[in-house]
Each structure stands twice: as structure tokens, then as C-alpha cells.
Amino acid sequence: EPLWIRPDAPSRCTWQLGRPASESPHHHTAPAKSPKILPDILKKIGDTPMVRINKIGKKFGLKCELLAKCEFFNAGGSVKDRISLRMIEDAERDGTLKPGDTIIEPTSGNTGIGLALAAAVRGYRCIIVMPEKMSSEKVDVLRALGAEIVRTPTNARFDSPESHVGVAWRLKNEIPNSHILDQYRNASNPLAHYDTTADEILQQCDGKLDMLVASVGTGGTITGIARKLKEKCPGCRIIGVDPEGSILAEPEELNQTEQTTYEVEGIGYDFIPTVLDRTVVDKWFKSNDEEAFTFARMLIAQEGLLCGGSAGSTVAVAVKAAQELQEGQRCVVILPDSVRNYMTKFLSDRWMLQKGFLKEEDLTEKKPWWWHLRVQELGLSAPLTVLPTITCGHTIEILREKGFDQAPVVDEAGVILGMVTLGNMLSSLLAGKVQPSDQVGKVIYKQFKQIRLTDTLGRLSHILEMDHFALVVHEQIQYHSTGKSSQRQMVFGVVTAIDLLNFVAAQERDQK
């Protein structure tokens, strides 16, 4: 057995438009009618409502009807409940999964919650491996369901041993009777949507819809739904939504950006999952974080739909894509998950301010006199920076000697690579993860907040409520011999709460 199987392995699926269902090699399930009293909570997966979006479509000038398939009504709160249950049931049916076995899954959280929910009911041990950027709410729900959680670096490539995929496979090879159901490759993922989600949409719309818009992560949702719609409703256009920084969209030119990270969760990847059939997507749109969270908040405030950030991405694209539809036509959007997962993220004004998705003037509360002053007023001194090749031991000596707790790590040209902190280095040394002679590049981390000289002290204040420091950066445009230009970030300084307090105190003292 291989040590790991690539999540982007070539698909062996034989589905073709027009091929009889009787030739399918898979076990198919028909939607079942729910009894009045459910035998367990797993029976509350599927049969989610279709809700008309009344205000947002009109606000953006849509002539067509805009409908939302509300997947956050599933038992675990997301569309991923469907595939989690289906993968477990299919693994039980073919004898792969037996009582007492362990389920391991690399996930952005929602599939993990679905699997942990099913594992709690069915009696399996469950280990979820997820990147650090995923919300604390997801972690809390997983723990409450009895799952064990392993976190991995957000910026690790999918084929790196440190990625959530790599760590999951390492655990599988170490733990007896453990299984990775593997949402990236498992046919049960798109089949769950082909058999149930798509049929529900067709039934709820009486077979009449002209466009379907869905955000894409593993691709199982859009693949399964689109294949069924292509068979039953061939005139329906399928629109895929991919965040900026991901590479799922086609044509490839759409993916060209210097951005590699994004805040919206559960969609987009740096590889093409095996289950994603991009041939059934008629057109791709890219979405960005700001519009995703703005539209998610709009869905909550104006439509009462308590959905997550990827739902915002989907609707932001839908109001663009559906401009081509006329009166009497219908566009369906998939709202994948609930706001429950993001209470401390985009639902929080403070978080939105820190990330730059909300401006101070958007909030009406009274601010102190210094709130709208610029960061450049602080008069920061030149920063202490270190090269990635310097040793951890030497870096600790320098920081202690100069009285700093942290320093930016830059390359020879001064471009920011990340940050090192005294606390992080000492804990890594004590844990045996690094040696004093190791290069400081081994303990770089990139989960820090950046701020510009033109940003306000109010925004800085919000950042420092949650973080010990902020890195002050400025952009530099560099022209190359080819005539092309590129933008790079340079370090201007490091600012802490002490710097802000000293500035405010000094100004008030001078005024007296």
C-alpha cells in the first residue's frame, strides 16, 4: 500500500453525458421521505430548503428570480454533511469501515464536522487534520463531537509532509485500522450531490432553472449537481466560483495573481482535486475576500440567511453572472454553511477592521482624538531585521541585547519573508524542534498583521487588541530589464502597544 495517494490523481470516472444510468458502476440512493420521529440526527441530513432572495437581486438590477439552496440546514450545519454520511455509508457497505475503526480526514473543517457527527452516532474514533487558518468555532464544535484535532501550517503546499493532507496520511500509516475516506478522491463525494442535492433542486424548481452558481473546494458539490442538471435540464448554465489565490478556475489566465492566501474558508485549493470535473462548468468567476464577507453580511442583514463567507462569494458572483438572465428565468445559488463557524471572524466588526474589510468610518461609535491620525505620526525608528541564514542562537542574543521581542526576517534585497519572535524561538528550542545552530528560517511564521503608514491609529489599535505587534510595510514598484514591473513589500518598522501608548501619553502631556 502506498504511503500516500495524491489528492489530485487523474480521475478514473467514466461518467458521460447521455450515458444510461443503468451502466453506472456505483451504488445510487434515492431521496427517502422522513418519518415524523427521526431514529437519529443523521436522518436530518439532506432535504434542505430552497429560499427566495428578495432584496439583493433587485438591489443589483437582476431581472431573474434568485433562489438560495440553504445547505446550513443540514444536521452539522453545512453541505459537507451529505458527503460525510455518504462516504461512511459506502465504506461500511463495501466492508472497508468496521466497528471500532478510526476515521482520519484532512479538511478545512466542515467535512470534519460532518464526519465527527456521523462518527459520534456510529461509534468510530475520528481524527481531523486541518490548517491553522480555520476558525476556532470549527475546532470547538469538533472537540465537542469527540474528534481529535491536529493543526497544520496554512501556507504548507498540499504535497508537503507538513500539509493537512501529508499529516493525515502519516497518521494513517501509524494508526492500525485507520482510514482516510479522502473527500478529494472519493466518488461518494460527487455521488452524494448527484443522487440527492441535484434531485432536490430539480424537484423544488419543478425542473425549471436557467443558471446554477456554486463555490468550489473539493469540487464534489458542483460536479455532482452539474452532471445531473446537464442530464435533466441541459439549458442550465453552470457557474463556478473560485477565490483569488486558488488555481481551480479555467482558463488558467484567471488564476494569475501574486496573491497566495485568502481568508474565506472551505473553497479554493492549490491543486485540482480528483473529484472535480471542470468540463461540466460553463464559466468560472474569481471572487475576493472583501466581496465575500460584504455579501455574507448582506445576506444575514437583508435576507435573514445566517450563512458563512463562501455563501457571500457565491452570491457576489451570482449578481454578476445572472445579469444575462431575463424576467421569468431563474438562478439558484448554493449557500454551503452557517455563520456559526465564523462568529469571531467576519461577523465581528473588530475582525473586519483588522483585516481591512471594514473602515473605521463605517462604525458610528465615538472615537478618541488620536483615532484618525496616521501611523506615520508615530515617528517610528528604523527596524531591526535579520536574514533567514542567521542562526536561532545568534538571533536570540541580538533580540535580548537590543531589547526586542520580535524581528522581521528579510532577504538580501529587503523583501519581507516573515517574522521571528523570542517566545516562538525559545519554545521551539525547548520542544526540540530546532537547535541553536539551525537557521532562523526554520522558525519563520507568517501569521502576523501588516499595516501601512497611511493607515489610521484606530486601525492599529484594533490590531493591537488581539496581537502583540504589527509590521509596518510599504510597497515598492521595481522595474526589470524586460520592461515588466513587480510590486514588493518592504519593512518600514515594527509597532507595539507600548509605542502607541507612549505616543498618546506624550501628545497629551505636551497639550497640557
Rank of each mutant, 00 (worst) to 15 (best):
K484W: 15
K442F: 15
G312I: 01
G266P: 01
L305M: 12
L501F: 09
V315Q: 07
G458E: 09
E303D: 06
W371V: 09
K366A: 14
H372S: 12
Q326V: 13
L501N: 05
N288C: 12
R488Q: 14
P383K: 08
A296Q: 03
G268P: 01
L422I: 14
G309K: 01
K283R: 07
L254W: 07
R488H: 15
D510W: 15
D337A: 00
L353P: 03
G423K: 09
R340H: 02
I398P: 07
D467V: 09
E412A: 15
L305A: 00
F469W: 12
C307F: 04
Y269K: 04
E365D: 15
V386T: 11
G240N: 02
V491I: 14
S485V: 06
P436M: 10
G356D: 04
L457Y: 14
L353D: 04
V491C: 14
K283D: 08
E263R: 03
G308T: 00
H394W: 05
E327Y: 03
I451S: 05
F469Y: 15
R400Q: 13
G240K: 08
G328M: 08
Q376F: 08
P273D: 00
I272S: 07
L387H: 05
G483V: 14
H468S: 14
W351R: 01
A301S: 06
E244N: 10
N424Q: 13
K366F: 07
E397A: 15
V473T: 15
D411Y: 13
P336E: 04
K366Y: 12
H462K: 15
Q489M: 13
Q302E: 07
E324N: 11
F271S: 02
D349N: 14
A322V: 03
S310E: 05
V495C: 14
V495K: 04
P336W: 00
V280L: 14
R459D: 12
T279E: 13
Q435N: 12
G312F: 00
K433T: 12
A318V: 02
C307L: 05
A413Y: 13
L358V: 09
I398V: 08
E508Y: 10
L353N: 03
A431W: 09
P273S: 03
T496C: 09
I247L: 13
V280S: 15
V386R: 02
E263W: 07
K433N: 14
S427E: 04
R340P: 05
Q450Y: 05
V410L: 14
E258D: 12
E252H: 03
E397L: 12
G393C: 14
S313N: 05
P408W: 14
I239Q: 04
A249P: 05
T279H: 14
S287L: 09
T260E: 13
L380W: 10
T294D: 05
K402N: 14
L363V: 10
L426V: 12
L457W: 00
G418L: 02
V473S: 13
R297W: 02
K402R: 15
K286I: 01
V339I: 05
I300F: 05
G245R: 03
L299W: 03
S461K: 03
W351L: 02
V317M: 11
L347I: 10
T454I: 09
V494K: 06
W369H: 05
V504G: 14
V275Q: 00
M352N: 00
G393T: 12
T260P: 05
G441L: 14
G356E: 08
T482W: 06
T456H: 14
D405T: 10
K446E: 15
N502A: 13
K442I: 15
V332D: 00
V420S: 15
E401A: 12
E250V: 08
S381L: 15
V375G: 06
F293Y: 02
E265I: 00
K433Y: 09
L380C: 10
T456M: 15
Q476F: 15
G403K: 10
P336G: 05
K320L: 11
G379Q: 12
D289H: 01
Q302Y: 07
A292H: 03
L363P: 15
Q376S: 09
I463R: 07
R459S: 07
R297Q: 04
G418Q: 08
L335D: 02
G356V: 02
G403A: 08
G458R: 08
V472P: 06
L248D: 00
V495S: 14
H462L: 14
E360W: 13
E465D: 14
F448Q: 11
E397W: 12
E244M: 05
G423P: 07
C307E: 06
D499L: 04
L299I: 09
L501V: 13
Y445G: 04
H462W: 12
T421P: 14
L399Y: 14
S348V: 09
F346W: 02
R340F: 02
L363M: 12
I398Q: 11
E508S: 10
N255V: 00
T385M: 09
A322N: 04
L399F: 15
T454E: 10
R509P: 12
L500R: 02
A316I: 11
L358Y: 07
L358W: 03
G483L: 12
V504D: 10
Q478K: 10
T274E: 02
F293M: 03
G483R: 15
P243D: 06
N255R: 02
L471R: 03
G379F: 12
F271Q: 00
V494G: 06
R350L: 12
L501T: 03
P408L: 00
T344Y: 03
D349H: 07
I463V: 15
Q511C: 12
W284D: 00
E244V: 11
G418Y: 07
L299P: 03
D270V: 02
M490C: 14
E290T: 10
V275K: 01
S486E: 11
A296R: 01
V375C: 10
G328P: 09
E377Q: 11
A431V: 14
W371K: 10
V264E: 01
V375E: 05
I416T: 12
L299S: 08
D499G: 01
F404S: 09
A505I: 08
Q302T: 10
L378Q: 01
M352P: 00
C307M: 06
T279A: 13
L471W: 13
M419R: 11
D270M: 00
G393L: 14
V495H: 08
K402F: 09
M419N: 12
M343A: 04
T257V: 10
G458M: 08
D510N: 13
V443M: 13
V317N: 09
M352R: 04
W351E: 01
K283H: 05
S461A: 05
V339Q: 05
L373G: 10
E412I: 15
V494E: 05
F448E: 07
K355Y: 10
Y479M: 14
H394Q: 11
A505M: 09
L358K: 11
V280H: 06
S338K: 08
M343H: 03
L305D: 00
I300K: 04
D242L: 02
V473Y: 14
R297S: 05
E291P: 05
L373N: 10
G441H: 06
G245F: 02
K442M: 15
I477P: 03
T364I: 14
T385Y: 03
C331L: 11
K286P: 02
R509T: 13
L471Q: 10
L353S: 08
V281T: 07
E324Y: 12
S481K: 12
P368I: 07
L306R: 01
I498K: 12
G493H: 07
V339C: 07
G245I: 00
D242Y: 01
V339R: 04
L380Q: 12
G393E: 14
T279P: 14
P243M: 08
N288I: 15
V332P: 00
G356F: 02
Y262F: 08
E263F: 07
I390M: 12
L471C: 11
A311Q: 06
E475Q: 13
I477D: 08
L335E: 01
Y262T: 10
I396D: 09
E377W: 08
L500Q: 10
G432P: 06
L378P: 06
M343C: 03
L335I: 04
L453S: 06
L306Y: 04
R509L: 15
